[in-house]
Design a protein around this nucleic acid. Sequence first.
DNA 1: ACGCAAACTTGCGTACACGCACTTTTTGTA
DNA 2: TACAAAAAGTGCGTGTACGCAAGTTTGCGT
Lengths: 219, 219
Amino acid sequence: MVTARRTGLREQKKQATRQALREAALRLALERGPDNVRVDDIAEAAGVSPRTYNNYFSSREQAIVAAVTAERESRVAAAVAARPAGVRLADAVIDAIVEQYTDPGEHDRDALLLITTRPVLRDAFVDAAAAIEHPLTDAIADRLGGSGRDTARVLAASVAAAVRVALERWTRWTAAASPAAGGLVVPSGSLPDLLRAALAPLTPALDAAEERRAAAPEN
Amino acid sequence: MVTARRTGLREQKKQATRQALREAALRLALERGPDNVRVDDIAEAAGVSPRTYNNYFSSREQAIVAAVTAERESRVAAAVAARPAGVRLADAVIDAIVEQYTDPGEHDRDALLLITTRPVLRDAFVDAAAAIEHPLTDAIADRLGGSGRDTARVLAASVAAAVRVALERWTRWTAAASPAAGGLVVPSGSLPDLLRAALAPLTPALDAAEERRAAAPEN
DNA sequence: ACGCAAACTTGCGTACACGCACTTTTTGTA
DNA sequence: TACAAAAAGTGCGTGTACGCAAGTTTGCGT
């Protein structure tokens, strides 16, 4: 298992507060528009003090965006770990990421529209992808065997960087396409395509790392 | 040329202000300790209004750190561009980075000590490495030929991520080593070594990109 | 069941980041 | 040389981030 959950009740409440905060943040942002939401409002809606809010999120944008990106980090790592051991590392990583970033239905549709519209939220959304680095490090390290932790870290960081590039491109053209006609589709503009395109250049590095693991058997 | 400088006098003054600000920030931080420096002080020392200060730097830490990392971004890109065309891309990039991150003498010695001590400054210092991404994208794109701009972007982002990892490790053990005996040296703890180790896993990706460029001649 | 230690919450105070509207400086052009 | 447009500097106001030092809750050993 990659996910090592600590003790029970305390962590449980913490996650509950976290969720309450991000959901309140998103809901209010959608209702009133993001500029008409104060952190006090979010805190109040979540039933905690404003100070506590800042113990969970270090910017207002982060809280709003978190409602969409919530837990995606650990899910990506889990998805990588879930691939059969025979699968090539590069495929496991890329497929897992594409899978987790595939639009999960209508629910966040308007949320994403709101986010991609405002530059500040766009940036926060893109930056949120960096959170996959540490879980992904663990997942890759597991596949490489204990010897390659340092390599896994670098690869995970690179993958996160590539994802960030893809998201930047995606938010770019969604912003450009929205004001125009709704039917205009940019060549290779879908998020999965962008992700695969951005991650492709890293495939040789992932392959090579896996190769060296095969050469140096265990630890 | 990678460096396309715009008009003259305006940009000149801008850079002068920038330099004045970061030097004032560092000097005051060294004199009084970083916690006893207000942005008003920095602005005053540089001869601009506090508001202008915030047009240049979006955090106090950024300004202090900038005095050490100043222009390293563009110098890395220039160093990559300066390597002969026959050199392998991976070597050009890695050597250029190591060269530019080699400690440049006693001048910043105490500054780096100050920075690596305080966690907030450490983070800012590490984050500053992300600035190499865009210049490096241009430099790599030049070597790949016009076709591979997107690939160059991903590779540059990955390289920047690897550098960040190396810097994190470096600041980690400098922080751990300083309080202890001064003579304690961690295995492969020098910054150049850490950089090469962190960048090594990306070599296959850089090679592959270069290879494909050879296959598809020009544009 | 008890109580201590660690973790989380909270209020307060301070400094900071940044949008906006306005003034001053620089640039390109007639 | 003169002038209009663009860019940079500035003052102001508002909301925000975060350190600190309480107070409160949870976990755990006995």
